[in-house]
Design a protein around this nucleic acid. Sequence first.
DNA 1: GTTTTCATGTAACCCGTTACATGATTCA
DNA 2: TGAATCATGTAACGGGTTACATGAAAAC
Lengths: 223, 223
Amino acid sequence: MSRRSGILEFAVLGLLRESPMHGYELRKRLNTSLGVFRAFSYGTLYPCLKALVANGWLTEETGGSPEPASLTGRRAKIVYRLTAEGKSHFEELLAHSGPDAWEDEHFGVRFAFFGQTSRDVRMRVLEGRRSRLEERLEKMRTSLARSRERLDDYTLELQRHGMESVEREVRWLNELIESERAGRDQRAVDPAEQHQKDTSGDADGLPRRRGGSRPGPSDDTTT
Amino acid sequence: MSRRSGILEFAVLGLLRESPMHGYELRKRLNTSLGVFRAFSYGTLYPCLKALVANGWLTEETGGSPEPASLTGRRAKIVYRLTAEGKSHFEELLAHSGPDAWEDEHFGVRFAFFGQTSRDVRMRVLEGRRSRLEERLEKMRTSLARSRERLDDYTLELQRHGMESVEREVRWLNELIESERAGRDQRAVDPAEQHQKDTSGDADGLPRRRGGSRPGPSDDTTT
DNA sequence: GTTTTCATGTAACCCGTTACATGATTCA
DNA sequence: TGAATCATGTAACGGGTTACATGAAAAC
């Protein structure tokens, strides 16, 4: 079964669900759209693609002719396309909301595909994430209380900043959960069916912060 | 030479510089004092300790008798102590401020030992970190601008939150750099020489936020 | 026509975890 | 006396990167 890391596999299936792509392009999307959070190298991506093909979740299409590239002699650009089994497998993955879904490594990628995730799963993942962070905060607070005197100012400052970061993410999650509750008629959307950008008013579950102008923080030309 | 990861080695030497400890205790300190950022398992720590001993940077002291534990039959508690070479090696590491010092994995640990780091190195690391983050922001902004239309609301929100996090860390660094500049008579302190908690007024380079009362967020007894 | 960027791949390695095995000490 | 916690260790594996090798297409 190979049990390849989940996270890359998930992201690849998710991206290919939107449209077929070749490896190179796929990697760029991984490192931008989902990026900030995870950057993969070719040494990881290509073997993974092979494995997904072996599982029957993807097909490889080489350039013009459907023949193996070896016949024509030219090294072909390989376009990967999601199979029906691949699609249903991805949908299974999307539906899972186990504890690992809200761990640091997974949460970002899961969130990135919330547009294709059912509302209740979204809720479970967000709430799971939140309580995960809250228990982490708890631990940080007690451990800090136990050792405050012993620690020097820099260590303390580091600790403080760390806690503030977590608290901030909790507030963010609160907002998101809030909006999810408020928003209605939410169901997952198959991106392949999205022929036109259906701008259906204000129907998503998001805080609507975009439009907040972002006054351009005195864009100083450092560097 | 073994070239063991740097980061664990650095943290271990730094902690042992404050006082000798055995592995178990060391690990706890790693996962709290420096924690939040990194958690190491015994499977990593113990082999690393062995390697540091082999390098002559640490000595192992078993319980009461200096004999190898095998003689007495009892499995001894092993106390690790920094050697003179270990100490000077650590000081070398402390003095380095190469580009890797401000990468994600290293920066936290480096900061945790700022109390023992010279002022100019502190400055270089903080400024290096800041410009690293600024160039990351730059990339995020352009990549976001290039693909804004193509991305769905959740992906966009994720991106926005990610950028805000980075911007926040930049502001934090600005404050720190500011205070470093303001603070004077800063030199690195050898923690072993600190016989009494010398509370010399306001002489450190930190924002003095502690004392900002932190109204005790209704210390709810969750769990 | 040469440099860049696109594009695919692999083998060696690195850092770290998991799961396991062992035993001492403390505490109910 | 038995459970929990302290304490040390290792072998197998896992997930990922680096460095390398190859070559086509585009840009200059």
